[in-house]
Simulated assay, not measured.
Amino acid sequence: MPRTSAIAAVGVHLPERVRTTDETEARLRRENPRAGLPVGLIRRMTGVERVHEREPGEQASDLAAHAARRALAASPEPVDLLVFASASQDLIEPATSHIVADSLGLDVPVFDVKNACNSVLNAVQVAHGLIASGQARRVLVASGETPTSAVRWQVADRHQFVRSFPGYTMSDAGAALVLEATEDDGRGVVDLAFSAASHHWRIGTLPTGGSMRPRDLDATYFDIDGRALQRAFLALGPDLVTGLLDRAGLTMEDLDLVLMHQVAQPHLAPIAERLGVAEGRIHETVVRHGNLASATLPVQLHQAQEAGLVGPGSTVLLVGLAGGISLGAAVVVL
């Protein structure tokens, strides 16, 4: 039986269409002329310069398939399982993984993993476990995020604008990872750790499609208390990350790079410090790409590889933050 799983390939699809923060604010003022919305607030509060928007008619499965084709081209051996991992989905039924598999022409078992912005990291956890136990040898994890469909452009008042605020910096994106069985050759997933503080689930919601509000049009928009979400993450503390590194026999100085989910640029430093992560080792993406939801970590890994920041043998820490709320971390040797 294999000792562990390793990342064989990464694929990314960032839509070419972009919406700048200036364009976002101009549209909000145009569609809400009497709301008195402040000018420049989104950029000042988040640091985000632009977000990606998928083409009209594109679905979450399309974005995932675009990225998956690139990952499979880089590592073309057959996969024996497809996991769709995203906060977004095409339909409630069937699982979006079926639609992705059909797009790719794959005839393999499929299922979805869903945990907000930690969906991909949790899918890596599942794929790693299946590979380590011998139930799979090569797993395709594919994500397609379409949060721009849940942006509220017409707000009733400033309170509703504030509750809708985090949605204005979210990006559409596709990402994919191929994980494969590997022998004890020094590369692969070293260890993972997860925790949750589920009493915070009400802080941020997108209720549409669920049993609570199945046909409520107002439920199709993000409703998030951004300040409360930041406080909740800061309250988590460093134990999960430091404990993971201790078990792996590593220190922060042993890491070549840290990949961390990013909601806003000003939040990076305080959250990193609270989690025990050296901010200077974090690969930043939020300014140029916005909040990429669960596609964040694969996009950061792909960019770091393309830029030569990491390569074979590099030790990388992945840190995931998600609504609900949950925290995840993984140490991987590339």
Rank of each mutant, 00 (worst) to 15 (best):
V178R: 09
L179A: 01
L179E: 04
L179W: 07
L179Q: 04
E180V: 03
E180M: 05
E180L: 02
E180K: 10
A181H: 04
A181M: 05
A181L: 00
A181N: 03
A181G: 05
A181K: 00
A181V: 02
A181D: 00
E183Y: 08
E183Q: 14
D184A: 15
D184L: 11
D184G: 10
D185H: 08
D185R: 13
D185S: 11
G186R: 08
G186N: 13
G186S: 11
G186W: 14
R187C: 10
G188W: 01
G188R: 03
V189E: 03
V189I: 12
V190Y: 09
D191Y: 08
D191E: 15
D191A: 15
D191I: 10
D191R: 08
L192A: 12
L192C: 15
A193K: 01
A193L: 09
F194C: 11
F194R: 01
F194Q: 07
F194W: 13
S195M: 11
S195C: 10
A197C: 10
S198L: 12
H200A: 12
H200K: 10
W201V: 02
W201I: 07
W201E: 06
R202W: 13
R202K: 14
G204E: 03
G204D: 01
T205V: 13
T205S: 05
T205H: 09
T205N: 09
P207K: 02
P207F: 01
G209H: 04
G210F: 01
G210D: 00
G210H: 01
G210S: 02
G210T: 05
S211Q: 13
M212N: 09
M212D: 14
R213N: 02
R213V: 02
P214V: 09
P214E: 09
P214H: 06
D216K: 01
D216F: 02
L217K: 12
L217Y: 10
